[in-house]
Design a protein around this nucleic acid. Structure first.
Lengths: 249, 249
DNA sequence: CTCAGTGCTTGAGATGCATCAAGGCTAGAA
DNA sequence: TTCTAGCCTTGATGCATCTCAAGCACTGAG
């Protein structure tokens, strides 16, 4: 008989092969023995409460995480500069890739609501990957996607108006929810206006004003953090409009 | 006797083990047979002329590249939105990671001056990595670093003043040159003011004005594209000052 | 219930940077 | 040499967004 640490409650029932996110997780395409090995490797820590920190900036890098339910934000503090939100993580997304090869974790990971994650020790993942090219490919692909996401974000932050950033943010969330089987037009913003502003490079008042404007223009409806995208196509168009700052028109 | 394609001039003399960038390249830590396999895998295409395109946006992703000498920029075109520079690559840096797992290349790669690269077919790299955990680690680490770079860039673009961006850009270049054995205080900007502006999210006129101001303040001296960082420490301090936009002070 | 704290909204004014416009410098072609 | 084209600089102006300030709504504690 073995004991389970206080931190790791026995989610004995949980198994990758039965997980609804299996096909969107690192496990995509894994089968049989490899999937079993993978499953045996991971931990399912107790759920995080809203505001609780999963990983602290500067912690030694050791694990990747997958969000099973709930959501997280990554917050980076840089010296005197005020903290900045660099990422939001939704169910089915892989967390912690930016710590790989860096020795320690580049930011705090904070739960935005009650959140369940799976924990993969990276050192064991490395071993598994040596035996499974499928798993190796999967992780490389996921990192490549994250690089492309960051690139899009850099383009967004550099030379787009507040309206475009907000429209892009909302339609981006919509797409991520849709891909995971949730409603693409009606969802709850688990992050505060302040988090959104920090992420988009806008003052909190600007976030509030833009959302208000969108509501007036009947692009969205808003009740607190519950948002409904009434005119998703128009939002998309705003997000991709040629005329931003720097655009000469 | 085999023929060499017109595109691939016979740099027969070049070998990874003798390359001065060996210890900063993907090959870092590789030895013996693995290094020889690696060497055998790569191509050394003819040098690119200034303005020449190594990879076109939308090309099928196939290769990673390492800069041996010269420099490149990555330019991303997004629909109606004007092109945006998302990256500069200096000698010893790995190019193309953001194409992994994406099917096609996310941006144009354009030489800023006469530039030599090495070309690694990614499919062969994948095979080599199955045999060499050192190589696998190395690539993961490099991708992790690139993610952290992007993160820093996102923080820079979101909520920092023009002066801070420029100071950060210059001290960042300085550091990259230093790490590669070049002078950290005196170097040539192979990119135009327009490229810098696009990269930093500033209008070209602003780039010019900020550089002028820095020169007046005796932080740098400037002759065309030749720059000398007179007060590198002050630049670093400006780059990391708490007071930016959004910082409440 | 009151009170304090937090998150959000709204208004008024300040400002950093983009934009528009003009001119200078350099390199290459004729 | 002159002409042209890029690239860069400098000045004047306008505007998007930040900042400051006030007030509302909600929540939890006492």
């Amino acid at each position: 008989m073995t004991f389970v640490s206080a931190r790791h409650l026995p989610y004995v029932g949980a198994r990758c092969e039965r997980c609804s996110l299996h096909s969107r997780c690192l496990t995509m395409g894994l089968e049989g023995a490899v999937l079993a090995d993978f499953d045996a490797m991971l931990e399912r820590p107790r759920p995080l409460k809203r505001g609780e920190t999963l990983v602290h900036q500067g912690d030694r890098f050791a694990n990747l995480y997958a969000v099973r339910s709930g959501s997280l934000k990554q917050v980076v503090a840089q010296g005197e500069v005020r903290d900045q939100v660099t990422h939001f993580y939704l169910p089915g997304e892989l967390v912690g890739l930016d710590g790989i090869g860096g020795g320690d974790c580049p930011g705090n990971l904070v739960a935005l609501e009650s959140t369940y994650v799976c924990e993969f020790p990276f050192s064991r993942l490395e071993v598994l990957m040596q035996d499974s090219s499928a798993l190796q490919n999967r992780l490389f692909h996921t990192m490549g996607e994250e690089l492309r996401d960051h690139q899009r974000m850099m383009c967004l932050l550099s030379g787009r108006t507040a309206d475009q950033r907000m429209a892009s943010f909302l339609s981006g969330l919509s797409e991520r929810f849709r891909l995971r089987g949730y409603s693409p037009t009606c969802f709850y913003l688990s992050m505060s206006r302040g988090d959104i502003g920090s992420y988009l490079g806008l003052a909190i008042e600007t976030v509030s004003r833009v959302l208000g404007r969108f509501q007036q223009q009947q692009l969205i409806t808003l009740e607190g953090r519950q948002v409904s995208l009434v005119a998703l196509e128009k939002l998309r168009r705003i997000a991709e409009e040629g005329a931003g700052r720097h655009s000469g028109g």
